[in-house]
Write a protein that binds this DNA or RNA. Structure first.
Length: 491
RNA sequence: GAGCCGUUAGCUCAGCAGGUAGAGCAUCUGACUUUUAAUCAGGUGGUCACAGGUUCGAUCCCUGUACGGCUCACCA
């Protein structure tokens, strides 16, 4: 149906006419000598008269076209930018010009010629040979307003990228962010590894998994919700510093900072504790910001975020004291804390432990207010089954998360390496799993076996790469930093 | 999962106490060899998301569905 629509049919007709001239509309290759940005740089001094000895070949997509009888102006867009071309019948010849007249906005062409400046001052390629490289059959969005509709932008990211150069910049920056982190970690002798995405037992985070099935093995497998337990197996095996940019999958809701699949950097460093990881974290991120922006103070939405170390750090208890109205979880019994929390409007089921209530209070009162980079330390043990207890207070663990603009961006702890303690924590989780908590952990005997061989004291860190990219590119939604965000099927 | 808002031409958007729709750009025809949101003249293009209901009559009012956006919930 759609294929017969008038605009597409017109282009099919032109395609046919072009073939009748003996021209192949989809040739196999073209060899440009320049890109648009190189032309703009190398010919910056060029005036109205072209230097006939400096011939160039450019390839790109026609983005505008203004026909004037026996001549025509157009703009060509390549991966780096745009440049105007000027096609004249007396330069390219009568028949090639007839063929050119059948080119449309959206077509990909190659041009050859010299560079000059028009009387309005625009650097322009005076074309004496033009070749179709790919005929476009589908009209692009309008040249002035571009493509606005979010649904179309997400579903047809290719069209979004053609029409909105700032979108492309976001994704280039995303790659640069990952590259910057990778470079710094490599320079510190971290080893980048790859661990299973398909896992027989999921773990390392609290989340519902995606489940799939392996026919030959006749068993269920899970898409990883984290790669934590595999990286720590590698620490056991003697890799003292490992990391992985891990695509993780969580079968949960979608909103401005959650996508069902997302990217997490996890790293583990043997012989370090969470304090060292804290120092590593702020350095890593501040240096990344500086490398991308040339400064450590950048705007995000309505705020200016200052990434300059050291970041503020306070314990979870302190943060609740600071941001709630006189709630001091440290001084209250579990029952008293429960009443206070309910009075303060926190939704609780009633069966929460004290530590879980503390975590809920933090989520309700503190998290949204943490705009500047802030480390929150010392989490309740109940919500931290892989973290080592505080030596002086076994109700809490050596753990921190860091928050920016009200978003949790990273999570770290001194890794629990006592296999007996770890088994006990697994058993508590297994009970919750039996009671229907789909997000509780499965008991992972193989992981416990690894710990029984002995894992050195280790610090571990996870950083949400999508959220970090949102912050460093000033994007409001995670969908704007994921090339192909999850969408419901069209109709 | 809930609430609110949206869905009109290829794109960006108007519109209507309820009387079967408009603009700009794109597209088509013609003119035009330094234009640039080119210009000038004349055309084409719509199941007004989908399905019901109310009505003499529905793009408009009502209900449902689909998809999307925002907020909330879930998600450490």
């Amino acid at each position: 149906m759609e294929e017969t629509k008038a605009l597409i049919q017109q282009r099919r007709d032109k395609l046919h006419e072009i073939r009748e001239f003996g021209v192949e509309p989809y040739p196999h290759k073209y060899e440009p000598t320049h890109t648009t940005s190189v032309v703009h740089r190398d010919f910056a001094e060029t005036q109205e008269t072209p230097d006939e000895t400096q011939r160039i070949r450019l390839a790109g997509r026609i983005m505008t076209k203004r026909d004037h009888g026996k001549s025509s102006f157009a703009h060509l867009q390549d991966s780096e930018g745009r440049i105007q071309i000027y096609v004249r019948r007396d330069k390219v010849g009568a028949e090639p010009y007839l063929i050119y007249r059948r080119f449309d906005v959206g077509d990909i062409i190659g041009v050859e010629g010299v560079v000059f400046r028009t009387r309005t001052g625009e650097l322009t390629v005076l074309v004496d040979a033009v070749q179709l490289l790919s005929k476009s059959l589908r009209p692009l969005p309008e040249k002035w307003h571009g493509l606005q509709d979010k649904q179309t932008r997400y579903r047809q990211r290719y069209a979004d990228l053609i029409m909105n150069p700032e979108v492309k910049n976001v994704f280039i920056k995303r790659t640069q962010i990952v590259q910057a982190i990778r470079d710094m970690l490599n320079a510190q002798n971290f080893i980048e590894v790859e661990t299973p995405v398909l896992q027989p037992i999921y773990g390392g985070a609290s989340a519902r998994p995606f489940t799939t099935y392996h026919h030959t093995l006749a068993q269920s497998l899970y898409l990883r919700i984290a790669n934590e337990l595999y990286l720590k197996r590698l620490i056991v095996g003697g890799f003292d510093r490992v990391y992985e940019f891990s695509r993780d999958f969580r079968n949960e809701g979608m909103d401005r900072d959650h996508n069902p699949e997302f990217t997490m950097l996890e790293l583990y460093q043997a012989y370090a504790d969470y304090r060292q990881i804290m120092a590593l974290t702020e350095t890593l991120i501040a240096n990344t910001v500086a490398r991308i922006h040339g400064t450590t103070k950048i705007p995000y939405q309505e705020h200016e975020i200052d990434f300059t170390p050291p970041w503020r750090r306070l314990t979870m208890i302190e943060s609740i004291r600071e941001h709630s109205e006189n709630l001091d979880p440290g001084a209250l019994s579990a029952d008293a804390l429960y009443s206070e929390a309910v009075n303060a409007g926190v939704a609780l089921a009633g069966d929460e432990s004290k530590g879980e209530i503390i975590a809920e209070l933090f989520d309700a009162f503190v998290e949204p207010k943490l705009i500047q980079p802030t480390f929150i330390t010392d989490y309740p043990i109940e919500v931290s089954p892989f973290a080592k207890k505080k030596p002086d207070n076994p109700a809490f663990v050596e753990r921190f998360e860091f928050f920016i603009s009200g978003m949790e961006v990273g999570n770290a702890f001194s890794e629990l390496n006592d296999p007996v303690d770890q088994r006990q924590r697994f058993i508590e989780q297994a009970n919750r799993l039996e009671n229907g908590d789909e997000e509780a952990f499965m008991l992972d005997e193989d992981y416990l076996r690894a710990l029984e061989y002995g894992m050195p004291p280790t610090g571990g860190l996870g950083i949400g790469i999508d959220r970090l990219t949102m912050l460093l590119t000033n994007q409001y939604s995670i969908r704007d930093v994921i090339l192909f965000p999850q969408m419901r099927p069209e109709s």
